[in-house]
């Protein structure tokens, strides 16, 4: 673990959802844990997010969605990553996500879902422990 270079996370807000409280909390949290966070800001298209992920050579993409559009946006993102040959990059999602939707998101290929009230520790542990490598 110690000789690994710092983890790089692209934290992205896809779609028109303007609620960024959670994304900014996660950005602060991960930075405090020594992670390099690249935050895209609001209203990013799927194309912009994939381009940023490739250019910034990130280890993982973290989406924040509170608009209810998490399934459709995740599908579009995964399809675009495949098209660009970047589908090895794991994708994590958090926000107002009903637990009923977690299974569907995992089937689409989302590595991990963090619904409302996920503890800060569980988020930090997952990222710093590169939870996606363990296959969850």
């Amino acid at each position: 673990m110690n000789n690994q270079k710092p983890l790089r996370v692209l934290l992205a807000k896809p779609g028109l959802d303007g609620h960024d409280k959670g994304a900014k909390i996660v950005a602060s949290l991960l930075r405090d844990a020594g992670v390099e966070v690249i935050y895209t800001g609001l209203k990013q298209t799927i194309g912009q997010i994939v381009t940023a992920a490739i250019q910034e050579d990130v280890d993982v993409i973290a989406l924040s969605v509170l608009s209810g559009a998490h399934v459709g946006l995740s599908q579009s993102l995964m399809a675009r990553l495949r098209k660009e040959g970047a589908d090895k990059v794991p994708v994590v999602i958090g926000g107002v996500i009903p637990r009923q939707d977690i299974e569907e998101l995992e089937e689409i290929g989302i590595a991990r879902v963090f619904p409302v009230e996920s503890s800060l520790d569980s988020i930090t542990e997952y990222f710093t422990g590169r939870g996606w490598e363990a296959g969850k």
Partner: peptide, 21 residues
């Protein structure tokens, strides 16, 4: 959100968000 952000329902940018919130 498309209405709040000034897009019509047929705008390719808003595919996932028409009639949602």
């Amino acid at each position: 959100l498309p209405t709040q952000n000034g897009y019509d329902s047929d705008d390719p940018l808003v595919r996932e968000e028409v009639g949602r919130v």
